[in-house]
C-alpha cells in the first residue's frame, strides 16, 4: 500500500469520526480537512472558522507546528495533529 498522510483525530472529535487515526490523500491541510468533512460531516466546523483554522488551534505536521495553517503542505507519509495553540510568558 502506498504511503498516505495520516491524520490523528483529537479525542473530543473521535465521536464524529469513530477512529483515532484517518488516512487521507490530501496534499495540504485544507484538503485533508475537506476530505475528513466529506467522510465525517462536522469535522470542518470543529476545526475551522471563516476558512481558517479556528483561533486557538494549531496544526502540527511531522512534529513541527505549521506556520502556514490550512496551506501547510503534506508529504505522502505526513503525520498530522491538531493541538492547542501555544504562547508563553
Amino acid at each position: 500500500m502506498a504511503a498516505m498522510p495520516r491524520v490523528y483525530i483529537p479525542s473530543t472529535m473521535r465521536t464524529l469520526t469513530g477512529h483515532d487515526i484517518v488516512d487521507v490523500t490530501a496534499t495540504n491541510v485544507r484538503e485533508a480537512i475537506d476530505e475528513l468533512e466529506q467522510r465525517f460531516p462536522g469535522v470542518k466546523a470543529a476545526l475551522c472558522a471563516q476558512n481558517r483554522l479556528m483561533p486557538g488551534i494549531s496544526v502540527v505536521v511531522d512534529g513541527r507546528i505549521g506556520t502556514l495553517g490550512l496551506w501547510q503542505p503534506l508529504s505522502e507519509d505526513a503525520e498530522v495533529h491538531f493541538v492547542p495553540a501555544l504562547g508563553g510568558g
Partner: peptide, 14 residues
Amino acid sequence: LNEEIRTQAFGSAP
C-alpha cells in the same frame, strides 16, 4: 459570571 460563555470543547464545533 459571563452570561454569554458556553463551553468550547477542543476539537468540537462552537
